[in-house]
Design a protein around this nucleic acid. Structure first.
Lengths: 242, 242
DNA sequence: CAGTGGTCTAGACCACTTT
DNA sequence: AAGTGGTCTAGACCACTGG
């Protein structure tokens, strides 16, 4: 099933251990020599595994120090909320359920193309409103094909991280994404959920997520009020060595 | 100046040759063994150089075939225009100059923080309107600090690619970017350049580009009419092996 | 100073593609 | 069969960080 290359096995093991807080964020992985000895591998092979973790954003390496855990999820350069001066304090974010997860057929006017497999399976749909400092900023509709995700409807709680839930419950990892972005005028649905005036300019984002299950995609439609908080991201290597 | 590691030297040489069409898009680089022999390097070192070209999106590798040139610029996951069904035909894109490159002090209300070095240097500013199928879709204001970019004002032609000009003329490469995105209502300036009604929702994007000159940044402010063409991008590895 | 990651070598065997 | 990239080993020396 999985690639049986030694560096891939080590990569997956370390990633799992990072996810499971064996190595929490900020901690240092065992040194390359220790990993070599423990796994009976050459240093090149160990470095190949660490290199993959590094390019995917899980760790950073520092000469003389070690490999430091940076993040618990692949850095995908997703847009996220930023204040005008600093990043929004995560403790001030809250989530409101608008539609609990339910089984349904795909909407007639679904904006993404679906495979026959996805069409036949129907979908699980839920919707949330995200707020920052009690001000609603994002209305999010998510659609997941009903394909081998047992207990999803019962177990997923809307106030948790969707991606972390998928990783823990199904070992499902988001590996990539396509998105399209528009500026649109708020209609009656948006005015209600985002508490804005009619015709307020909103950011509309359609997203198709790709995962490590090659035929399983997730879909989201986002509406964002950017009056107080812009959406921002960073891509590429911003801090180069020298 | 440059890193003197052998793999970095080879990486830079190959990148320059790709840029200069020594290896055009679609062509195959010399095999790893040939590169080893030509540069008197071990295969690991050659592979490290190729690996960097690969993760930056210049080449793809295929077992049994070789290293195939994919792109002439680092893939930065920039947002670009997409039609509703297919990518916009590049032959239908045109550029209109609104403001020719000129020296000026930084605007009072410049939305990015500037270093003392940048402040003192003043800036070069130009503005363009991009059209797709003769319909204006983007109004773009660009600001470049006046730091060691000789002949810029005289030589840069607004209808060429800004990034390719910088690479050819100054060996300046864009390595990363930060951006913030809003939905805003069109004001009188936008209605004029983008030929839209007042208060039409527009995408506003502020961008700060980072380059291989560690203290040189470029700045752009974009206003996009997304009524006909959305902005889209792709990030992460969409097509995994298997 | 000992330990870390960064760079590099000279081999080896494998799976895949093309001729 | 010959050539390609994919994986892997067992060394080596270096520059950097810490006590």
């Amino acid at each position: 099933m999985e690639s049986s290359a030694q560096y891939q096995l080590l990569y997956h093991r370390l990633k799992k251990e990072i996810l499971a807080d064996v190595y929490p964020i900020g901690s240092v992985l065992p040194s390359e020599n220790d990993l070599c000895a423990a796994a009976s591998l050459s240093r090149s092979t160990v470095r190949q595994a660490l290199s993959q973790l590094e390019t995917e954003g899980y760790i950073t390496k520092q000469k003389g120090k070690g490999s430091i855990v940076k993040s618990k999820s692949r850095s995908l350069n997703l847009l996220s909320f930023h204040g005008f001066s600093a990043m929004v304090d995560k403790t001030k974010m809250s989530t409101l359920s608008v539609q609990e997860p339910t089984f349904m057929p795909w909407p007639e006017d679904f904006p993404f193309e679906l495979s026959e497999l996805e069409k036949g399976a129907g979908c699980i749909h839920f919707a949330r409103v995200r707020s920052v400092a009690r001000r609603p900023v994002m209305y999010e509709l998510t659609f997941v094909p009903n394909l081998n995700l047992p207990r999803f409807v019962r177990q997923f709680k809307l106030n948790q991280s969707f991606f972390e839930f998928l990783a823990k419950e199904y070992q499902l990892e988001i590996t990539g994404m396509e998105q399209q972005i528009w500026a649109v005028a708020a209609n009656s649905i948006h005015t209600q959920h985002l508490q804005v005036e009619s015709n307020t300019p909103l950011l509309k984002i359609n997203r198709k997520y790709h995962s490590n299950r090659s035929h399983l995609h997730l879909y989201s439609i986002l509406y964002c009020d950017t009056e107080k908080y812009a959406l921002g991201n960073t891509s590429g290597v911003i801090n180069q060595s020298l």
